[in-house]
Every structure is written in C-alpha cells, then in structure tokens.
C-alpha cells in the first residue's frame, strides 16, 4: 500500500495527494496526519487534491473526518485545488463536505489559514483576566 507524505512548512502541514488512493491509503493518511498535528503542534493543514480526478463518498468522508479531527487537535484544515468536474460530481452525488474550508490553490489556502489565525482572539490567560479587573 502506498502512503501519502505529510510535509511540514512553517506552521502548516501540507498534504498533496498524488496517487489514486485505495481506501486503506486514505485511512492511513487520516492517522498519519493526526499524529503529525500532535507531534508538530501545527495549527493549519492544507490538503491539495489537484491531482485527484474523482472524489467519491469514501474520500469525501475522509476529508470531513480529517477536518473534524484537526479541529479537535486545534488545527484548521483547508482543502485546495478541487477540479471543476469533481465539484460538480460531488454536489450531484450528495456530498456537501460539511465543515471543510476550501480554497482554489495552495497559496490562497495558506492566506486563508494565516488570516483565520490572526482573527482568533488571544487566549485569556492570567494576564487577560487581570487586565479586565
């Protein structure tokens, strides 16, 4: 079984899916990515599906799961590079990819992650509490 590599670039984990994935490969990616988020403390995940010529319900579910797992691990996921024909087919298939943020390419995905990280309110630690009193 092939494995999909997970690359760390700054505060972001980048996954570029370049193979026609077997279901087992998709499941392995889900686990590898979860491990890497925890190991690196990265707050953003970009999944590039430019090379995928279809996204069926299994891969769609994997993308939704990865987004949900990442969120629980304090990371945000952006899926980038979906082909127009894939988008049309996904919608007709009935997959809405709930909870997944998308961008047209890797560069826009990185911008999206940087913006949403900047918009997040700072954690209210001891300092935050004392500042309000």
């Amino acid at each position: 079984m092939e494995r999909v590599p997970v690359l760390k670039i700054g505060d972001i984990l980048l996954v570029s899916i370049q193979v026609d994935m077997q279901d087992q490969t998709a499941l392995a990616l889900q686990e590898d990515l979860s491990d890497r988020i925890v190991a690196t403390g990265c707050h953003g995940v970009i999944i590039d599906i430019t090379a995928l010529d279809i996204v069926d319900s299994f891969v769609g579910r994997m993308l939704s799961s990865i987004a949900a797992i990442s969120r629980v691990l304090d990371a945000e996921t952006v899926v980038v590079g979906m082909r127009p024909a894939v988008a049309i087919t996904l919608v007709e298939l009935g997959l809405s990819l709930d909870g997944i943020r998308t961008a047209l390419n890797v560069e826009l995905g990185m911008e999206l992650l940087a913006r949403s990280r900047a918009d997040e309110p700072e954690d209210l630690g001891i300092d935050g509490l004392s500042a309000t009193t």
Partner: peptide
Amino acid sequence: SLVDQTKLVTAASELAR
C-alpha cells in the same frame, strides 16, 4: 465529456466498493 467521465468514474467507484 470531462464532467461525464468524472460522474461515471465516481459512480463506478461507489458501486465497486
């Protein structure tokens, strides 16, 4: 067409699974 190819391959993937 590319869209029809994509739809057919996706349907085949679902049914093969």
